[in-house]
Each structure stands twice: as structure tokens, then as C-alpha cells.
Amino acid sequence: MVNTVLTISVVLILLSVLLSLYRFIKGPNTADRVIAFDVMTIASIGLIALISYFANRLIYLDVAVVYGLLSFIGVIVVAKFLEKSL
């Protein structure tokens, strides 16, 4: 029961990553791509947490923490670059 519902969640999150990938490819400008990237990584954090449930390993959550840090820094760096102040 629980496993079935969580599998449905994994499928939904994968679909949302696919939809943001569409926006990532289509553009039309850099900022749109960055926000698509942001949604993709934030969704991936949830995905990694679900994977650590299926593998039953606590250590995978550390990967999610580092992933979140990197996504935050990445978005801010690109935003600074857009402002031409990097």
C-alpha cells in the first residue's frame, strides 16, 4: 500500500522534472532556463529523499543536502552574471 503510493509519487516527480526540462530547452531566455533548472533541482531533492526510502539508507539524505546547497549557489551565481556584476 505505502510502496504503491510512493511509487506514484516518484512517477509524478519524474513527470514534473520532464516538464521543467521542456521549459529548460525551449527558453526563450537565460532567466527562464535558470528558473526551470531551479525547479528541477528542488524536485530532485524530493526524488532523492524518496530513493533513500526505497533503498532504506539514511546516508543518501546527505546527498540531498549537498544538492540543495549547490542549487542555491548556482542560481545566485547565474543571477549575478545576468546583472553583469560578476
Binding site: 505505502v2 506514484i8 522534472v17 516538464l19 521542456y22 531566455n29 527562464d32
Partner: peptide, 30 residues
């Protein structure tokens, strides 16, 4: 079971967010 339902709601919200990302007309609404 409560936890699974909450997780399902969260993934539905993520899906709707990505759908909004595709449908909205300009950057700020996205």
C-alpha cells in the same frame, strides 16, 4: 499511510508547479 498520502500531495504540488512553468506567459509569472 498518513505519511504516504502527504508525500503524494507534495508530489502533486510539484507536478502542478512544473505545469505552471510550462503554461505561464512570462518569466515573472513562471
Amino acid at each position: 499511510i498518513i505519511g504516504a498520502v502527504i508525500t503524494l500531495m507534495g508530489s502533486i504540488a510539484l507536478f502542478l508547479g512544473a505545469l505552471g512553468l510550462v503554461r505561464m506567459p512570462d518569466l515573472y509569472n513562471r
